[in-house]
Amino acid sequence: MSRIYAGARPGHGEDLLARFPVVLALFNGAGGRMLLYRPGLPAEEAPPVPAVYQYLKALAHSTVAMHEIALRADADPAALAGFADAVEQGLTTLPDLALDPQTARAATAVLVAVRAFLSTPRTPGSATTEELEDFGRSCAPHVVVLMEKAAAVQVNHWMSVLDQWHLLLGPSGFDSVHAAVNTLYVTRRKNILFTVLAQYLGERAIGDRLLLFETPEFTTTPEHMLDLMTRVVADRNLGRAFFGHGQVMDVEILGDAAVHAIRTRMLQRARTPVLPALAPYDSHQWPWPTDPSSGTTPTDLYTATALHQPRLPAD
């Protein structure tokens, strides 16, 4: 089965790209990548997020580096010296970013706080909890300003890109777009690229044409993303044929049987099972479908199979 299944996937991928426009949004440290695949045309990659996004993010993240340095007794002296030099260089060259006054003040305050903490004589790794909390509290309001400005740059960029792609494809073409975003666990619930795409594809696309792929890897390739999307879309034909609904195959089909087994075994042990709430297969909830009333289709494999009975032979 595995060999046949893997061998069929390239054909399914070609079919997907021939039938639908596809948008891939890939997570990276520069604010993400977006690619548009139009049937019969080569992939089009959007311009990157303006570089000021990375500077603002780096300024905010400098406080995280400081926190880790203060905790480590084995901190590399050369790395500490290099970090101190980078902070000084940042203070010197900050005007080159031409930031608005509020953002410039926040950036300066963060770098000054980091420099002051670095220059305080102490044994490596000896910073107290109180010192670290005081440092964090003093930086937090400025970090929030920097993150707010960085997010505005990122969101404005990607919404401008999607505005252009919406015009390019037209309303009818955009209504058939299939899109996928890769995410780490920590960015799943408030994923920026996914949330921006949801504004254009709409709530009803979530879990249907707009997919979120969780991964342990920080970055991935467009080819891998396309392969995952192909697998999901192709498997929906299997779901419709076997169980009457395509999205039955979007989840582990052994999961319902496992839930039944867990419930049975826990009751045998006179213990309350800890199980997720079941949502219909066509639920558009995000990031996790948990509301039983959020759709109209079955909520588990048993119900779907019971409704999808073999056709009676013709008289």
Rank of each mutant, 00 (worst) to 15 (best):
S2I: 12
R3M: 10
R3G: 07
A6Q: 12
G7Y: 09
A8V: 10
P10L: 13
P10I: 13
G11R: 13
G11N: 10
H12L: 05
E14K: 10
L17K: 03
A18S: 15
F20Q: 09
P21D: 09
L24T: 12
L24D: 10
L24Q: 11
A25Y: 14
L35Q: 04
L36S: 00
Y37M: 04
Y53I: 04
Q54E: 07
L56P: 09
K57L: 10
A58N: 13
S62K: 15
S62H: 15
M66E: 15
G82L: 08
A84S: 13
V87A: 07
V87G: 04
E88H: 11
Q89G: 11
L94W: 14
T108G: 12
V110W: 00
P121V: 01
T128E: 08
T129N: 06
E130Y: 03
E130P: 01
L132E: 07
F135S: 06
F135H: 10
V144H: 11
L146Y: 12
M147C: 11
E148M: 12
A151C: 09
Q154Y: 02
N156H: 11
W158I: 05
W158G: 02
W158P: 01
S160D: 04
L168C: 01
L169M: 02
L169E: 00
G170F: 04
S172N: 05
V177Y: 09
A179G: 04
A180V: 08
R188Y: 07
R189Q: 06
T195V: 04
L197W: 07
L201A: 07
R204T: 11
L210R: 02
L210V: 01
E214S: 06
P216A: 09
E217K: 09
T220E: 05
T221M: 08
A234D: 08
L238S: 08
L238R: 04
A241Q: 06
Q247I: 02
E252S: 13
I253D: 07
G255H: 15
G255I: 09
A257H: 14
V259K: 14
H260P: 02
I262M: 14
R263A: 15
T264R: 14
T272Y: 08
A277M: 07
A277N: 09
D282H: 03
S283E: 00
W286T: 00
P292A: 03
T296D: 11
P298Q: 02
L301I: 05
L307V: 06
R311G: 08
P313G: 09
